[in-house]
Design a protein around this nucleic acid. Sequence first.
DNA 1: TTGTGTTTTACGACCTCC
DNA 2: GGAGGTCGTAAAACACAA
Length: 221
Amino acid sequence: MDNQQLFGSSYVDTSFFAANGTAQRESQPKARRRRRRAARCGGGDGNGGEMDEGGDPKKRRLTDEQAEMLELSFREERKLETGRKVYLAAELGLDPKQVAVWFQNRRARHKSKTLEQEFARLKHAHDADILHKCHLENELLRLKEKLRATEEEVQRLRSAAGCHGASADGGDSAGAVSVCGGSPGSFFSTGTCQQHPGFSGADVLRPDDDLMMCVPEWFFA
DNA sequence: TTGTGTTTTACGACCTCC
DNA sequence: GGAGGTCGTAAAACACAA
């Protein structure tokens, strides 16, 4: 069937068909499924309202051609105004209501897929943030350890110089390394990085990432 | 062949816009 | 008020592993 004939120039431009053709389906399994069904049923009859033995209109899957043309039309414009609905229904031998329902369901599928992709993107970004936070925490620990060593060295030099009253700060230097066990805002308890169970930082790691202290506790569970 | 999970079609309820 | 939208859901159609 000629695409120009089917949709009319006001609905679909020819460059779209040229670019997409009929091969650009969302997934191969879907195509395979339709092929198998077509083989079983002896191909589509072009009638979406086939009756069962009792004469009741049963749920009928659209033929490959019908689905394909609706898909092309959907990609062109996701909303369905009355004129286009009636036109498509007439050209595809469907009830206008069927066309409307198909578009409703197609929009729902599209939205669902979009949300899925957006979720994956946000999760990836979140994982990267968690990893970055881990590195910052590790760096903080290193710096505090360095500070503690420096303060110990100062203390030692003062002692060596006979400056016994120098510890006016109450000997608080030991508190400098208490971050591991007691820092209120710390993410760490025993030097490991506590992650959410769903953390999947592996996909954002780089070869030079220092993971010395960044092992989630659940890893050892 | 059958049980089960997934996809597709269809519908009703409710909302928004003209 | 009617047309068409989303959302939630039922059920048929289908794929596939056991």
